[in-house]
């Protein structure tokens, strides 16, 4: 693919100039209209969060009442307790946490190693291999997950967390790219000194490059953690009722004795479910912005 050869210069510039995401340059007239527009758009983008929370605070009767009211008559925290007890919320949260942490930890390290190889080492076939990395970035999991599921079920890996370990060890092309860009920018003198001291590449990687890449390591970990936390297809296909994750549990398991879904309790569960992602986002927003921007800067 061509993307490996040319490089969008505009994006490249923003990737190197740091903190450019703020920068307005000159005053412009007509900002009053802009604020009105921003306000209106914010309602559309933030509204769903608010409506979710409001639904989580209503009684079921209030929710189905016609005509309904926007605000709950009396705030109902009981939906949250019911969300925690109706299904074994804590157990599924632990499954999600365990699985996502393992996956994120492994894929961060493996992607760092692979990114280091592509950035600092040389061997025949490197260019071709990197092109394959870039093209697999274009091949999302959805296409391979079904045959993978069939394969794994024949290998007896269904209902275990081994698939996530394997996926974690296999590195992600996206994160490999992120690490490669970072490592490629580090001056050569740093490794020269270590080579003269007789240090091998594995040690140079672990002792010099890994510690330097702390911000990228954090970005990669948080990013892959949220991928796995939010993933639905893989756990739905590969894990049974006891092993599955929160994302599967909250989609369709909140039901009354008649088998009808209880939207208010599900809303409470969904609120709890997105909390970790929102927390990660608010504490590490710049990491997210950087990684998203980095993805557009294909090398």
């Amino acid at each position: 693919m061509d993307i490996g050869k040319t490089r969008p210069i505009a994006a490249a510039r923003t990737a190197t100039g740091r903190g450019t995401l703020r920068g307005p340059r000159r005053p412009r007239p007509g900002n009053g209209a802009a604020y009105v527009l921003l306000m209106a758009l914010s309602v559309v983008f933030a509204g769903p969060f608010l409506w979710l929370l409001l639904a989580a605070l209503k009684t079921r009767e209030e929710w189905v009442a016609v005509p309904g009211s926007v605000l709950p008559d009396q705030v109902q925290w009981s939906n949250f307790t019911q969300a925690l007890t109706d299904v074994n919320f804590a157990a599924y949260a632990m499954n999600s946490l365990f699985l996502s942490t393992t996956y994120a930890f492994l894929i961060t390290l493996s992607s760092a190693a692979v990114g280091f190889g592509f950035a600092r080492l040389r061997a025949p076939g490197k260019r071709a291999m990197f092109l394959v990395v870039l093209s697999t970035m274009m091949l999302p999991q959805v296409l391979t997950i079904l045959p993978t599921y069939v394969m794994f079920s024949r290998l007896g890996l269904v209902n275990t967390y081994w698939p996530w370990v394997l996926w974690g060890l296999a590195a992600s092309p996206y994160l490999v790219f992120l690490f490669r860009q970072f490592f490629a920018a580090i001056p050569r003198e740093l490794e020269d000194a270590a080579i003269i001291d007789g240090c091998g590449w594995p040690r140079i990687f672990v002792r010099i490059f890994l510690p330097l890449s702390r911000p990228v390591l954090i970005t990669a970990f948080l990013l892959s953690f949220t991928w796995s936390w939010g993933d639905y297809i893989a756990p739905a296909l590969l894990l049974d009722v006891d092993h599955t994750t929160l994302s599967v549990a909250i989609t369709s398991w909140y039901k009354d004795p008649h088998g009808n879904g209880i939207p208010t309790v599900q809303a409470a569960a969904a609120t709890l479910y997105i909390m970790p992602v929102l927390l990660i986002f608010f504490f590490a927003q710049r990491h997210f912005v950087r990684s998203v921007v980095g993805s557009a800067v294909k090398g």
Binding site: P48, L52, T251, Q266, A270, I274
Partner: peptide
């Protein structure tokens, strides 16, 4: 960045 599962519920 909201997981699709939650987006769909919302």
């Amino acid at each position: 960045i909201v997981p699709m599962v939650a987006t769909a519920i919302m």
